[in-house]
Structures are given as C-alpha cells and as structure tokens.
Design a protein around this nucleic acid. Sequence first.
DNA 1: CCGGATCCGTAACGATACTG
DNA 2: CAGTATCGTTACGGATCCGG
Lengths: 229, 229
Amino acid sequence: MSRRSYNQYCATAHALDIVGERWTLLLVRELLTGPRRFGDLQANLPGMGTGLLAARLKYLTEEGVVAPVTLPAPANTPAYALTEAGHALGPAVLALADWGMTWALGPRAEGEVYRAGWAVLAMRSAFVPDAAEGVAGVYEFRVADEVFHARVEDRSVETVHGPAQRPDVVLTAADGDTFKALLLGGVSFADAEREGRATVAGDRGLLDVLVSLFDWPQPRERVSSARPR
Amino acid sequence: MSRRSYNQYCATAHALDIVGERWTLLLVRELLTGPRRFGDLQANLPGMGTGLLAARLKYLTEEGVVAPVTLPAPANTPAYALTEAGHALGPAVLALADWGMTWALGPRAEGEVYRAGWAVLAMRSAFVPDAAEGVAGVYEFRVADEVFHARVEDRSVETVHGPAQRPDVVLTAADGDTFKALLLGGVSFADAEREGRATVAGDRGLLDVLVSLFDWPQPRERVSSARPR
DNA sequence: CCGGATCCGTAACGATACTG
DNA sequence: CAGTATCGTTACGGATCCGG
C-alpha cells in the first residue's frame, strides 16, 4: 500500500491505493501493449521525473502489478512487464479511455504530445467483436518513428508495440494525425497515398476491412447541469 | 483542465487530467448512487480536508462533471449531483472496483473504515443480467445507520442511497460485515435473524432470489512475476 | 549511453480553526 | 451546515550526478 492510503474497506478505494497515484495508470497504459525499457517509458511519459518513474516501478513491482524482465535475444536488455494482475487493469484503463474519447478529448491542443502508440489502446476500446466475425489479419503500423501491430482473429484484437512477425499488410503513415484520419475513415488510403502521407504494402483489402471493425464514440460536450433523475 | 496536466493527446490522459487527482474518483463513486450534501460527502470521505473537498467540487462543477442541485422538498437543502458526463464515469469506477475486488481487497484491515453504501457499487459490479431474467423487486437495506435501496427490473439493477418509495422487502443488518456475509451467501437470512444480527420485513422470498443474482469475483493474489506472453 | 539515485524548489494535500 | 483561511507536511518536477 502506498504511504498515503484512503483507508477504506472498499474495492474502488483499494484499487486506487495501488494504482491511483499520479502517472501510475499511464504507466500501466504503456505496459499494456507489451514490455518496455526504462528509457522508452521515460520517453513516452514526458514530464515525469526519472526518480519518480523509478519509484513507481519499484512500488508496482513490490505490489505485484509489474515485474522486471529481460528482453529476448538479441536485445537481452532489462525491461518491465505487467504481471497477470497488471494485465487485469486493462478494462479499467480502457473504460477511462472510453470516457475520455467521448467526454474529454476534443481536437488536439497546442503543444500536446502525441504518440501514435496511444491510438493502439483506442483501437482496443473501439473494436466491435461482432464486426470482426470471420476476419483475420496481422497489421503492422509505422507512424513517424513508432512501430506497432495488431492481430485480428476470432472476433478479437490484440495490439502490441513493436513490429509484427509476419504482417499481412504494412501501413506507413507520415504522422499521427494522418494515421488517425485513416483509422476513423475520414481519409481514404488511396487519397493519403496520392498525397504522399502514407504508403501501403501487402494486402490492401484488409485495411478497408480494418476500418469497418471500429465504432468510434461520438464526442460530447460536458455541460454543467445535473442529469435528470 | 487541472493545473497539472499530463499534456498528452491521449484519451486516457485527458480523462485522468479531469478525474485522476487524489479523491476525485471516490467523490464520483459517492455521487454515483445519487445526489449528496457537502456534509454527507465529508462523512464518507474521512481524511479529505474540507478545503480540498470544496476545491474538487468547484473544479468538477466547472468541468461539467458535477452540478449543484437543491434537494426536493421537504429538505430543500443544497447538494451535488452528477451531470450526464459524470454518470458516464460509472463504467470506469466499476472497472476499478472489479479489479479491486479481485486483486486488492482481501479481508478487512485493522482500522479501515467501512460504509455499507460502498457495497452498493459492488452489487452493480457483480450483478449478472442473465440471472435476473424475469426478476423484479425493490429492496431496501438498512445497515447500521445507513439506508439505501436496489431496484431490480428487466435484467438490470439500479442502486441508490436513501430509502425506497415502496420496497417489497426491507433488510435490516446490524453491521456491514453481517450485510456482506448475507449478500455473499455465506450466512443464511434465517440464521442471521436467529442470532439477532438481522431482521427481514416483507417478501423474504425475494431476498433469496437477490443473492442468486450476483457472481462475486474470486479474490486472487498478486505475484511478482511477469505474465507469459 | 542507459538506468537509475540524490537534491531542492514548488505545488498539492491533511488537519484544524474559524466565519456567515 | 456549508464552506474559507491558515499552516505544517508530503509529493511531485527538473536537474544534476554516478556506476556499469
């Protein structure tokens, strides 16, 4: 338990005792798409001091949410991964992302950092299993200098950072905004390629299928009036 | 946006910018079961300073998550309620509660505060719609000095604090532990009544039905080993 | 260079006292 | 009852330094 506990016998309070401190759930978000090294975490969590990052990792390790691992050869470098309990936080992080997409995101603000990898979680959240009936495919995405991939299979999607082993199709987008527009269906892949903002290699048909697998929430405005009973 | 923003164009980060500060999600948890007055919130959030509570309410009001209301006559007293955006946080709070019940709750620790009202959220979380096929009933619960009720109808449950208008059955439990044991099915209503720890008024058959509507998660131990890929 | 540990100024929090 | 005001304590953020 963190030094500051809510001291309530309540499931929500206990959960927040462990993962409710500043940065913690964003740290879990990073690890939800696979193991990461200290430096990668630092790069994706700008504003978080190295001391704090180290302290959080240590605390979460003690609490059995995170575990240190050694990346497979040839990297052989230390990294951090989620335990089973850590992975179980996925639904909670996705529920927050869901709320954020609907009620808090809006257009990109000035100076806001954007990493395409974060869209990976959004894909999990907006994925519609029923729409993926009979769909199977491995997608690799390269956005700016980031690489991640998605594996669609059996009405489910699995999103992980890093390259795919044998992708059916590789989508390269110049920047995050282009990638987002493509995923939301606002821009066609053909148009983006024509404008030089994206390139596609492999089974392009699978990309059009991909877009149809998501149901993106309609952004709403928060208004200051009580909800009628 | 709170003064300290994560400054990331990410749905999770934006959500946490608004509701990620200390106490905020517990405050939302309180309001998820209906409007509450300042003093009630204070009483259910021991350890939170009045100044901080006032600041949070003000901030959340500005952000359109909470709205000040006047309780209906004869109370006619000021209170706080959730807006539509605030109610939309329900799934996120429940997801955290779910995780907490499985991975973080355990037995009650020494000195931990327990309010029966918190079990109300747990009931929402553990409710199994399929088990409630054809079930309808209004339950009122009185635990220690707290009163709340549940309305089961059409494969759904609605839990609100305060008394019910026309309850089918009223369950009075001496303390939270008794109430919990009854709900989890560890103790029968007859036994509890015999021991003087509970009384039942109304349609007692509905209570046995109630217990069958929940699927309580099996508590798990958090262990410090990475989850296999 | 990566993975941290240490230090210090600032902002956030917690407890209590006080006011309309 | 519903909040302000105040003040000591804790947590965070940024920078610098250190060992492999």
